[in-house]
């Protein structure tokens, strides 16, 4: 089974628009939105939720005020400053490590499973779609990403689909690492700016670290053809396959407003190039 992870390093480069376009062109695949921090793909794929469940991404400490003698041991031990002077747990700081519960001399602290997200399996006109949404102010997104990928793999296997298209998250931290884990190919969507180039270099170090075959495309290349050329040069020198350059096209936002992928919405410049890119990517996969 093939997995294509679409990542970007820098945010806002058009990753999800490209993922949705691929989803509308590829046959026999599962789509997964692993950008759980800011999931947007559902806005273009118009999913019909078939199954949803709570996702327990971690633990949280609960202090039983009846048993607590306010000895102060836990506040000393907690490395995350999650226990206040009045012996209450600050949920946004608690990492769920359980150190306080283990060492409380009065056994006044218990660890509880915490619901950190909702996970969905949906039907779309493009095929099965797995996505999730973190509860407000919840971390632990890496675990949710892994769970989404697991579901996507299971569904692909059950249906005999050879491909999973994954919308990854920006950055290089835990959700991105989880999005890439076990996948063979990543398409990095970048933009021709000094920040885009800088972030591409960092994400490339990450994909190389995990030995993932890296493809790249430049979105809005006409914002700076000069930097596009620098990016192409960088890719050549680093064994990154450049699969195309997409022009700036207001149709991309119009497609979004009409809840469609750009290749469905328009036959314009961006749409045509994304089709070419998909042809190249599917040949390489």
């Amino acid at each position: 089974m093939n997995e294509l992870v679409i990542i970007s390093g820098k945010g806002g480069t058009g990753k999800s628009s490209i993922a949705a376009s691929f989803a509308s062109m590829a046959k026999n695949k599962v789509i997964a939105d692993c950008d759980v921090d800011a999931p947007d793909l559902h806005l273009l794929l118009r999913p019909e939720v078939e199954k949803e469940e709570d996702f327990h991404g971690g633990w949280i400490a609960r202090i039983d005020a009846q048993k607590c003698t306010q000895c102060g041991e836990c506040t000393q031990l907690c490395r995350f400053q999650a226990i206040s002077g009045s012996y209450e747990i600050d949920e946004s700081r608690c990492e769920g490590c359980g150190v306080c519960a283990e060492f409380c001399p009065c056994m006044a602290i218990e660890m509880e499973r915490k619901i950190t997200a909702r996970k969905y399996i949906s039907k779309t006109t493009y095929g099965p779609f797995v996505h999730g949404r973190l509860a407000f102010a919840e971390g632990n997104s890496g675990k949710l990403v892994s769970a989404i990928k697991e579901d996507a793999r299971r569904i692909a296997k059950e249906n005999g689909y050879p491909l999973i298209i994954i919308d990854g998250s920006p950055g290089i931290g835990c959700p991105v690492i989880a999005s890439l884990a076990g996948s063979k190919a990543a398409l990095c969507v970048t933009e021709p700016t000094v920040a885009g180039l800088h972030d591409l270099k960092r994400i490339f170090e990450l994909t190389r670290h995990f030995r993932i075959n890296t493809l790249a495309c430049v979105n809005k290349y006409d914002v700076s053809e000069e930097i596009t050329a620098v990016i192409e040069q960088f890719c050549k020198g680093h064994d990154i396959t450049m699969v195309g350059t997409i022009p700036y096209d207001p149709d991309t936002v119009k497609a979004q407003i009409n809840a469609m992928s750009v290749v469905e919405y328009s036959r314009g410049r961006a749409s045509r190039e994304i089709r070419n890119i998909w042809d190249r990517v599917s040949e390489l996969m």
């Binding site: 945010g11 806002g12 921090d37 800011a38 946004s92 973190l134 407000f136 102010a137 919840e138 971390g139 632990n140 997104s141 998250s169 920006p170 950055g171 931290g173 959700p175």
Partner: peptide, 14 residues
């Protein structure tokens, strides 16, 4: 701040 609402975004705005 980093984009999004994950632990790193929360740590930044705290």
């Amino acid at each position: 701040c980093p984009p999004g609402t994950s632990c790193s975004a929360i740590e930044s705005v705290r």
